[in-house]
Amino acid sequence: MTETPMTTERLAEIRSLDLLSVMQFSVAPVVSGALADLIAEIDRLAAQRKFLLGQLAKRDAESGGEAVGRFFGGEQSIAEAESARPAPSESLTVYRASHDSIVMGLYTTREAAREHCEAYVRREIPGAAVDWIEDEDDGVDELAAAFGEDERSTGHTVMALEVAARYDSEADE
């Protein structure tokens, strides 16, 4: 999986997305809500990062400048650590957990999306054995539940979605 750096500009771009113009009317509010949750998590992590870098700077000052170098495995200042960002990538893969086309959540790993679906099914159908059926043709994983020999689809699916880092005008045609 590739990572896209969350720059201030990229976050502003995401916050200003008009999903109704690019998605079906019934899906846009659900995806918009999930996106809002992801943005809130990014904000929380950014605040936590700022706090931790502040703590590191404090320890660095107390230790005579050695804490940052030890933390980052080399001679690096707080300013260098703050400005260090990975190179932009072409896309990011997220995993959508859904039930009968209703989006339950978006996750950065397939395992987390599957865990959400399984937890729901285990609450709704206690004692059922669950198994994932992977369809390599369409890339959708379908959750099935079984009692004895009778196995049926639960309607829960996990699908990998590719999120582009930037607009490609040639791919739009």
Rank of each mutant, 00 (worst) to 15 (best):
residue 156 H to L: 01
residue 115 E to V: 06
residue 94 V to E: 03
residue 148 G to V: 07
residue 10 R to G: 02
residue 157 T to Q: 00
residue 63 S to T: 15
residue 124 E to F: 05
residue 73 G to A: 08
residue 155 G to C: 10
residue 165 A to E: 14
residue 30 V to N: 02
residue 110 R to A: 11
residue 21 S to H: 02
residue 137 D to G: 05
residue 150 D to R: 07
residue 98 S to M: 13
residue 25 F to S: 09
residue 78 I to Y: 06
residue 125 I to Y: 11
residue 68 V to R: 01
residue 64 G to H: 10
residue 115 E to F: 03
residue 59 R to G: 13
residue 4 T to K: 07
residue 46 A to K: 11
residue 38 L to E: 03
residue 71 F to H: 05
residue 68 V to Y: 01
residue 14 I to A: 08
residue 39 I to L: 15
residue 144 A to F: 15
residue 74 G to V: 04
residue 75 E to H: 07
residue 48 Q to L: 14
residue 85 R to Y: 05
residue 136 E to L: 13
residue 33 G to W: 00
residue 64 G to L: 07
residue 52 L to R: 14
residue 170 E to P: 02
residue 125 I to V: 09
residue 151 E to A: 15
residue 68 V to N: 00
residue 70 R to T: 11
residue 82 E to H: 02
residue 90 E to C: 06
residue 145 A to G: 05
residue 34 A to H: 01
residue 60 D to Y: 04
residue 165 A to T: 12
residue 157 T to Y: 00
residue 53 L to G: 01
residue 61 A to G: 04
residue 33 G to S: 14
residue 141 D to T: 02
residue 105 G to M: 03
residue 163 V to A: 09
residue 16 S to E: 15
residue 125 I to N: 05
residue 80 E to V: 13
residue 162 E to T: 11
residue 65 G to F: 11
residue 78 I to W: 01
residue 76 Q to P: 01
residue 15 R to V: 01
residue 131 D to N: 10
residue 98 S to K: 04
residue 96 R to Y: 03
residue 127 G to H: 02
residue 116 H to E: 07
residue 1 M to V: 12
residue 156 H to D: 00
residue 59 R to F: 11
residue 68 V to L: 15
residue 59 R to I: 06
residue 167 Y to S: 07
residue 93 T to A: 12
residue 48 Q to F: 07
residue 137 D to E: 14
residue 73 G to N: 10
residue 78 I to G: 02
residue 84 A to H: 10
residue 5 P to W: 06
residue 30 V to I: 11
residue 67 A to N: 07
residue 47 A to K: 15
residue 52 L to I: 06
residue 121 V to Q: 01
residue 154 T to C: 06
residue 26 S to H: 12
residue 165 A to Y: 04
residue 145 A to L: 03
residue 171 A to Y: 10
residue 138 D to Y: 07
residue 102 I to C: 05
residue 158 V to M: 03
residue 16 S to F: 01
residue 75 E to N: 10
residue 122 R to D: 06
residue 114 R to H: 09
residue 169 S to T: 14
residue 59 R to H: 11
residue 120 Y to T: 10
residue 131 D to I: 08
residue 82 E to Q: 14
residue 56 L to C: 06
residue 3 E to Y: 12
residue 115 E to L: 11
residue 133 I to Q: 14
residue 148 G to M: 07
residue 77 S to G: 09
residue 172 D to E: 15
residue 161 L to M: 13
residue 157 T to W: 00
residue 19 L to R: 00
residue 65 G to I: 12
residue 77 S to E: 04
residue 53 L to D: 02
residue 54 G to D: 07
residue 72 F to W: 10
residue 93 T to G: 04
residue 152 R to K: 10
residue 86 P to T: 09
residue 49 R to M: 04
residue 106 L to R: 00
residue 46 A to S: 14
residue 61 A to H: 05
residue 168 D to E: 10
residue 162 E to R: 14
residue 141 D to R: 00
residue 60 D to K: 04
residue 116 H to W: 03
residue 129 A to E: 13
residue 139 G to K: 07
residue 36 A to G: 09
residue 160 A to S: 15
residue 91 S to E: 10
residue 92 L to N: 03
